[in-house]
């Protein structure tokens, strides 16, 4: 009985909110910086320029290939569009200690955050990784994709250019 009423409530909410589906904000969740400091997702901003938010983990090879590809192009992408990349590691306590040495070892230049109990992953409804979100200047999610294959970074960058107003 209770479950049915909750379900109908959600069905109603879903129906009335359809108009706002395309443009969501990032949910407010407190995760961590690489050195363990609390980090609120409301701090994910870029002065009106686009943001790429990518979920990854040490055990996920395609994730690292995608981030390596981002890193290779990052300087050029920033020059052209001012885009900022945040890579959120969902490694749990079995491997969080290895994230910082690995990130430095790979010389990644973007910001890396830790989500050790998958709080942000859950709040953003990420099922599998790699899962990458693209946010516009107002912080709204404009596009997202899962999986990485060689060359997918160029399609993403085309979208970044579009929302940055550069064709």
């Amino acid at each position: 009985m209770m479950r049915t009423s909750i379900f109908s409530l959600f069905a109603l909410l879903l129906f009335f909110s359809l108009g706002s589906l395309a443009q969501s904000d990032i949910p407010q969740v407190t995760i961590k910086t690489l050195d363990g400091k609390p980090f609120s997702t409301s701090e994910i901003t870029n002065d009106g320029k686009p943001v790429i938010l990518s979920f990854w983990a040490l055990w996920c090879k395609p994730c690292q290939k995608e981030l390596d590809a981002f890193n290779e192009n990052y300087a050029d992408w920033q020059d052209e569009t001012g885009v900022k990349i945040y890579a959120v590691s969902i490694d749990d306590s079995r491997s969080t200690a290895r994230v910082m040495p690995m990130v430095n070892g790979k010389a990644w230049e973007f910001e890396v955050l830790l989500d050790p109990n998958s709080d942000l992953k859950r709040a953003m409804n990420v099922n599998m990784i790699p899962h990458t979100f693209l946010l516009n200047g107002e912080g709204k999610i404009v596009s997202q994709h899962t999986a990485y294959f060689e060359g997918a970074e160029f399609e993403l960058f085309d979208k970044v250019k579009k929302i940055a107003g550069i064709e």
């Binding site: 909110s17 108009g19 706002s20 409804n125």
Partner: peptide, 10 residues
């Protein structure tokens, strides 16, 4: 309640 709400899911 209707306009500012967001629904996400998977």
């Amino acid at each position: 309640f209707l306009d500012k709400a967001q629904i996400n899911g998977s």
